[in-house]
Design a protein around this nucleic acid. Structure first.
Lengths: 218, 218
DNA sequence: TTGACTTTAAAACGACCGTTTGAAATAAGT
DNA sequence: ACTTATTTCAAACGGTCGTTTTAAAGTCAA
């Protein structure tokens, strides 16, 4: 009886699926410190499993890193994309203001927690700055679809007397602003001297929508 | 005679000042790969000197990294700042359009080579994403002054019926766009499918000025 | 319960890490 | 030219890295 209980406890404790725990802990650590600053020992210790599990489940450290993007990052990004898509598709009158508002809200407030969002952005900024194998995955499966969707939505409102490439640049700039205000929080706090609290965040979203809309010049 | 000649050649070859060569090579490698992905052995090999030189001149690897920012990054950033300052101070009529144009040109075309610029931005993006000791240095000596300068210049043109913090946000967004279009070149190339050549760059600058100006809403 | 298969565990592998040592080479001062 | 201080060097230090090995534990159909 006692033995059985102990086994049950252990099962719950490790909640099974070493593979999943490895992916979760690896993602947090890679985001926090970067690929080379995190050791396999550190990851497996956090996941409360043996070092060899990394090699068993993912063959090696690099594959674990790529798999973090494939099975965690991309689906999470697609979740935000769907939030945006649903929001924008339900609009009676999809004018640029409402499109951009849907976009910023989906990708800043979004369906993710604050901490999850921070981690998510840290990972992608590392990839943008130093692309690895994971970059192609992310670009093809999440960025290009979002870009095309936005292009289709905003194209009808673009001034006629303008190069075709300009809307691409505009969309890129909006991407950039969304990304920037997440990954540069330390700088913003240091320069403005204000905390990144709920009030600050609300005003930030308001700003981003306004600035992006103005930037579009529609 | 032969001996003397050889010595002279060696002197020129190593061009003296191991310390300077270490800083230069270290900067390139840190920018390219990141702090943890670069070893002291790699740096000293590139600088054609002994491994112990790092400890002799900088005490340890971390200090070398910080010193790269202190003696190379910050002065280079200040060079761009001065380019901007001179440009904007010489304006007869410093309207926002000309201010932003001066800014973008100084920080995108700037006085730096393309490669130097890329390195410069890679280093700061790493710091923004994962601040270290070097971050405070950079924020205090380069970012805050630029921010204050821009605030002073643009404040006169800000709409009156607007929060005081909004201009801060606007300046941040312009910072963000300038930064973004440098560090996300791989993504831009992949999504737009166009090369980052001279023509592309020229249109990019034009876009950034227009988008930022529109964003300001002045 | 058996037996084939999957998953986890502890220990050890060689390689490379940042740092230190102590002596040799060079430069500078007198 | 001799002494002193500065700079560079090869070699080795203890430690940690990613990966592998070998064996035990768990899982599940027959």
């Amino acid at each position: 009886m006692n033995k059985k209980t102990d086994e049950t406890i252990n099962k719950i404790k490790k909640s099974n699926k070493t593979r999943e725990r490895l992916l979760e802990k690896a993602e947090h650590l890679f985001a926090q410190k970067g690929y080379h600053a995190v050791s396999v020992r550190e990851i497996t210790a956090a996941a409360r499993c043996n070092m060899a599990s990394v090699n068993y489940h993912f063959k090696n450290k690099k594959n674990l890193y790529v798999e973090v993007f494939r099975s965690r990052w991309v689906p999470r990004e697609l979740l935000m994309y769907e939030t945006f898509e649903k929001s924008v598709d339900s609009l009676n009158d999809p004018v640029p203001k409402l499109i951009v508002q849907s976009l910023v809200r989906a990708y800043i407030e979004g369906p993710l927690s604050d901490e999850e969002f921070k981690m998510h952005r840290q990972l992608i900024v590392r990839e943008l700055n130093n692309p690895t194998e994971a970059f192609e995955l992310v670009a093809d499966q999440t960025m290009r679809p979002l870009f095309k969707k936005l292009y289709g939505l905003l194209n009808d409102f673009a001034p006629e007397n303008i190069d075709e490439g300009n809307l691409s640049f505009d969309i890129m700039s909006i991407f950039g602003i969304i990304l920037y205000f997440n990954y540069s929080r330390p700088m913003i706090s240091r320069i403005t001297g204000k905390p990144y609290d709920a009030d600050f965040k609300a005003r930030l979203i308001e700003h981003m929508v306004r600035f992006s809309l103005n930037g579009l010049g529609v």
